[in-house]
Amino acid sequence: MSGPLLKVDNLRVSFPSPDGPTEVVKGVSFAMGRERLGIVGESGSGKSLTGRAILRLIRPPGRVTADRIAFDGTELTGLSGRKMRAIRGARISMVMQDPKFSLNPVMTMGDQIAEALTVHGARMSRAKLRSRVLEMLEKVRINDPERVMQMYPHEVSGGMGQRVMIAMMLIPEPDLLIADEPTSALDVSVEAQVMDLINDLIVQNGMGLILISHDLDLVARYCDHVLVMNAGEVVESFDAVNMAAAQHPYTKGLLAAAPRMNETREFLPVLDRSAWEGT
């Protein structure tokens, strides 16, 4: 492949308000190959909307504009709904924050994973389809996949539900995975297991990853490059190994506010927005 896997130029998302359209994503631009890109920022910084806008998942009255959103050389902004659906899920997949709200409560886990293949036109026998689903459940390290295939979302833990979501998104063998806070609903003990799993599958399959998170340490551990967003804008970007050398006051404030296991503090530092707002 020549050129970047994904190139985004001047992406903007706005919503109507009593005072007119309000921009919540303001001119985001970046390019990436088959690498691991982290997008970090506080809640409300626009990072999740950026991921959804790339996949054209922002519904009216939201409005998305961009000079360019090109995936593997194909411009996405002008594609028909049918052609976009052929890319969404098949070549670009997205893992949402909480499986409780993403999985269909009236379908078994096995049927939902199988649907991720059949909805994109996969033609295979029931036996072959079942075999593929079992294989994918094993890849995401689920014990007793035969039993899990028959279970419904309310019957599994949050960690297992997220593994099923990952299996569902990866079974079509996409080129890019967008993971939106994939561990936010999980216990700390499960978080590392799920992130190790995502990372291993990304590396094994030679895929690109966009990891959306508020956790700077998590992004530093699993990503190659980092975009820092604040109030809808990218304020800084750098290689993950250089996170400690971040220059923007907002990034420095996020790093200083992160709690550490090896220290005791009565209060966490507060972000001083006057250090960058209005500059």
Rank of each mutant, 00 (worst) to 15 (best):
S2Q: 03
L6I: 12
L6K: 02
D9I: 09
N10D: 15
V13N: 00
S14A: 14
F15C: 10
S17T: 15
D19K: 08
T22N: 11
E23W: 01
V25G: 08
G27W: 01
F30C: 12
A31V: 10
M32L: 13
L37M: 11
I39N: 00
E42A: 13
G44S: 10
S45R: 12
G46Y: 12
G46S: 04
K47T: 01
K47F: 12
K47M: 04
K47Q: 12
S48Q: 11
T50G: 05
T50W: 06
T50Q: 04
R52W: 08
I58R: 05
V64G: 06
A66N: 01
D67S: 15
A70I: 11
F71T: 05
F71E: 03
T74M: 09
T74K: 07
E75D: 15
L76Y: 09
L79H: 05
S80F: 06
S80Q: 11
R82N: 00
R82C: 07
R82T: 09
K83H: 12
M84G: 02
A86D: 13
G89M: 13
I92H: 01
I92R: 06
D98E: 15
S102M: 02
P105E: 14
T108I: 09
A114H: 09
L117F: 11
T118M: 13
A122K: 09
A122I: 05
R123F: 04
R123G: 07
M124F: 14
A127P: 11
L134M: 14
L134A: 06
K139I: 11
V140A: 08
V140C: 02
N143A: 15
D144I: 02
R147N: 01
R147C: 04
V148H: 02
Y152K: 12
R163H: 10
M165S: 12
I166G: 00
M169V: 00
M169H: 02
L170E: 04
L170V: 00
E173L: 08
E173H: 12
E173F: 13
L176C: 02
L176W: 09
L177P: 03
L177H: 06
I178N: 01
E181G: 03
A192G: 08
M195F: 05
D196W: 12
D196E: 15
L197D: 05
N199A: 02
I202C: 09
I202P: 05
M207Q: 02
M207P: 00
G208H: 10
I212M: 02
I212A: 08
D215L: 04
L216A: 04
V219C: 00
C223N: 07
H225R: 11
V235I: 13
F238D: 00
D239A: 11
D239K: 13
D239C: 08
N242C: 01
A244C: 08
A246V: 06
A246S: 10
Q247R: 15
H248R: 04
P249H: 15
Y250I: 13
T251N: 04
G253K: 14
G253L: 02
L254W: 05
A256P: 00
A257D: 06
E263Y: 07
R265I: 14
E266Y: 07
F267I: 13
P269C: 11
V270M: 01
V270I: 05
L271E: 06
R273Y: 01
R273A: 14
A275M: 15
W276I: 07
G278Q: 12
T279I: 14
T279W: 15
